[in-house]
């Protein structure tokens, strides 16, 4: 079965999440930092009146915090309630959170369609990422696409 992934880069690592989990991709990055918040929290973003917690997914995966650049983006994810509204036919294995969350990434990559048979189990200890956060990898001509288990990475 074919699956579509929204891909993005964290420190040149090509990552992907199920496109159905994505609500929108935002380039407005006026993020208010919150003193005293956990390190992986980048801050809060006002998205048309809704407050979104922006997660520095890089920190969560064990890398350094990202520096904002003109290509930085915020991937806003659907909430669990929004996912529940998707038609039954959409098979989603992932979970998100009950509140609005955004992922802070270096830049956005292509939308990629692959057959789910191409997804391989992640090698143990892949790139020093906690294997809890990995769902699989896809071997591609140019690079390796890392599919994240985003629900796991978002749980506090």
């Amino acid at each position: 079965m074919e699956k579509q992934f929204t891909t993005f880069y964290i420190d040149e690592m090509h990552c992907g999440i199920d496109i159905l989990l994505v609500k929108e991709i935002n380039r407005q990055l006026e993020i208010s930092e919150v003193a005293g918040a956990p390190v992986f929290i980048r801050g809060l973003l006002n998205l048309r009146g809704q407050i979104i917690t922006v997660i520095d997914i890089s920190v969560r995966l064990g890398f350094a915090a990202r520096k904002p650049t003109p290509r930085s983006r915020c991937i806003v994810l659907k909430t669990t309630a929004e996912l529940a509204q998707l038609p039954q036919s959409a098979e989603i294995e992932e979970e998100t959170t009950s509140e609005m969350v955004g992922l802070f990434v270096d830049r956005i990559g292509d939308m990629i369609t692959v057959d789910d048979r191409e997804i391989q189990a992640p090698p143990a200890n892949f790139g020093n990422i906690d294997s809890r956060y990995l769902s699989g990898v896809i071997q591609r001509e140019a690079d390796l696409l890392v599919i994240l288990k985003i629900g796991e990475a978002l749980s506090c």
């Binding site: 919150v34 005293g36 997660i55 506090c156």
Partner: peptide
Amino acid sequence: SSYFSNCHFYCGT
């Protein structure tokens, strides 16, 4: 947000 459940110095946003 529940991510701030350990930040007791805030009560809302």
